[in-house]
């Protein structure tokens, strides 16, 4: 297994004449938690969109596991290859129960391949992790914002993904909930898994991230540890300068 989980290579995404990503390159390794930060509109969500196959880039590639070019694959194929993503805006299925969400996430296919008890076990396990055991029969539409965030995280991690992408997992959460989420992310860290977190909350980023990439106007502005990011003049300029 190669060490690099995701290799983003010269990615350009344009909306009309506007470049949301501008020849962006970066590498994310297995075993690390990578935070991607940057001001609003920097292109963070767009990057995740390209990786998960929702947006087609104009140029460039995204190599997964050093071999598979994701830019030509469908969203479903990318997901089945082992990449999962939580959206910035909580995206849950309002008409389904919490349990159904986890079951759909745990075992892909129109029919279950796991036998019933195995699936039940897995669902219970994940519900435990995200702390939604008590809610398991409620409809997702009835959950609070924080619970929806966790439900979505549970749904994507139920499949044991190799690459886990979280777009603003603590936006709108209370301090206590943020705390729990940070602990959860650290707990999900594994040598054979890369975790990508997009966040604006710097304290949260500091607690979870091994390395930080700062995006600005579709390009990498800086890459390194959180301390160094805080010290970097250019980054400070971008965040405070306007």
């Amino acid at each position: 297994m190669s060490l690099t989980a995701l290799l983003v290579d010269g990615l350009t995404v344009r909306f009309g004449s506007f470049r949301a990503l501008d020849e962006l390159s970066l590498a994310i390794d297995y075993g690390e938690v990578r935070a991607i930060i940057g001001p609003n509109g920097a292109g963070k969500t767009t990057l995740l969109d390209v990786i998960s196959g929702i947006t087609r880039p104009k140029q460039g590639r995204v190599l997964f596991d050093g071999a598979i070019d994701l830019t030509g694959l469908s969203e479903a194929a990318i997901a089945r290859a082992g990449l999962r993503r939580k959206f910035q805006k909580p995206s849950v299925f309002e008409g389904l129960s919490v349990r159904q969400h986890i079951a759909i996430g745990a075992d892909v296919g129109f029919r279950t391949r796991l036998d019933a008890p195995a699936l039940e076990d897995r669902v219970g396990e994940v519900l435990e992790i995200v702390g939604l055991v008590d809610q398991s029969h409620r409809l997702a539409g009835e959950l609070s914002h924080g619970q929806k965030q966790w439900l979505e995280i549970g749904m994507v991690l139920a499949s044991d993904p190799k690459v886990l992408m979280l777009d603003e997992p603590v936006a709108g959460l209370t301090d206590e909930e943020t705390e729990r989420t940070a602990a959860l992310v650290r707990a999900l860290k594994r040598p054979d898994r890369a975790i990508v977190v997009v966040e604006h909350d710097m304290d949260f980023v500091e607690r979870i991230a091994d390395r930080v990439t700062v995006l600005h106007e579709g390009r990498t502005l800086f890459e390194g540890s959180m301390d160094k990011v805080r010290a970097d003049a250019a980054v400070v300029e971008v965040y405070l300068g306007r």
């Binding site: 929702i54 479903a76 990318i78 995206s91 849950v92 299925f93 309002e94 079951a103 759909i104 749904m155």
Partner: peptide, 27 residues
């Protein structure tokens, strides 16, 4: 059935379901 749950999921948020590995086109 489970298939029915997937139908509802498609109705509620198709992109979400696709990014979980389901070919909603087939469904």
């Amino acid at each position: 059935s489970r298939f029915g749950a997937l139908m509802l999921a498609t109705r509620d948020d198709e992109t979400r379901l696709r990014t979980m590995g389901y070919e909603t086109l087939r469904l």
